[in-house]
Computed example of a mutant assay.
Amino acid sequence: MTENYLHDVDETERLIVEYGLSGSHAEKKRIEGRILDETIGTAYRENAPKETGFPSGTPLLAALLKLHMDTEEEEMLGLIEQEIGAVTDGFVEVADFGLRPLPYAAYFDLMDYADYFESRDPSIGRYFRLRTFEELGAFDDKGLLRHYESENGLIEGLSEILHDYLRKMHDSIR
């Protein structure tokens, strides 16, 4: 099944793909344990960071635009623009892990994983893109994220500044 393109990957990468392709809840739980063992070991099981989810919709878009404004590295700008496209199109799901695979990876390793999985399983590729942005602190400003949520849970629109920035960014990409 997945072995066709997994002959050149390490065990963790193989397990992450298996997790993404698994349709069974019991199988996902079993694979989560194996991912945990491969990444931080059984001795640290109690300290394993739980997956808490990522912002979505307008709060995510606002955080990405702010990160894009503050970034100069070309490779990172491309990754951010790719995620902005996923957010505005709304077609790519995000893989859901109960426990974080590679919980202590640096942002550049997470970028490599995002790139690696993008062509194999877009939902896992998107998961690692979001983890990259999280590692860079894009979601640390809880005030920014809350600013775009209303009292009733509905998402309000972007500020005029962010809206203009998004429009200019789209015009420059075309």
Rank of each mutant, 00 (worst) to 15 (best):
D37W: 05
E3M: 06
M169Q: 05
L110C: 01
F108S: 12
A26N: 06
L65V: 01
V17M: 11
G23A: 04
I155Y: 08
I161R: 13
Y104T: 13
K50C: 00
A86S: 05
Y165Q: 09
R14Q: 01
K66E: 01
E11K: 14
D109I: 13
M111S: 13
T52S: 11
P59G: 08
I31W: 03
E32H: 12
F117V: 12
G125W: 00
T58E: 04
M169E: 13
H7R: 02
E149F: 12
F128E: 00
N152H: 01
E51G: 13
P55R: 07
E81I: 12
D10A: 01
S22L: 06
R167Q: 14
I161H: 07
A63G: 06
D8K: 15
I35V: 09
E118D: 13
L154E: 12
E134P: 01
V17K: 02
A106P: 02
R126H: 08
G41R: 01
L102G: 00
I16R: 07
T2I: 12
L77M: 09
F97E: 08
F128G: 02
G98V: 07
E81R: 15
M1N: 03
K142Q: 15
E32C: 10
D112M: 15
E160S: 02
E151Q: 12
K28P: 00
R174I: 12
A106Q: 10
E27I: 06
E13M: 08
L130A: 03
S123M: 02
G137S: 04
L65M: 07
A114K: 07
H68E: 09
E81C: 11
P55I: 08
G20M: 10
R100L: 15
N4T: 03
A105I: 14
D140H: 00
Y116C: 09
M76S: 03
D109Q: 12
L77R: 13
D141K: 11
H7Y: 14
T132M: 04
A48R: 05
M111W: 04
P49D: 05
A62Q: 04
E93R: 10
K142D: 13
P55W: 05
R126K: 12
K142A: 14
L144R: 13
M111V: 10
A43D: 02
E27T: 14
Y107G: 02
A26I: 10
H68S: 14
F91G: 02
G153L: 05
Y44L: 07
S172G: 08
G41Q: 00
L166E: 03
Q82F: 13
L36T: 07
V92F: 03
Y104V: 11
A106W: 05
L67Q: 09
A62M: 02
N152D: 13
L36C: 06
A43S: 05
H68G: 04
G143S: 11
M1S: 02
M69W: 01
G157L: 00
F128C: 00
P59T: 08
H170F: 08
D164R: 14
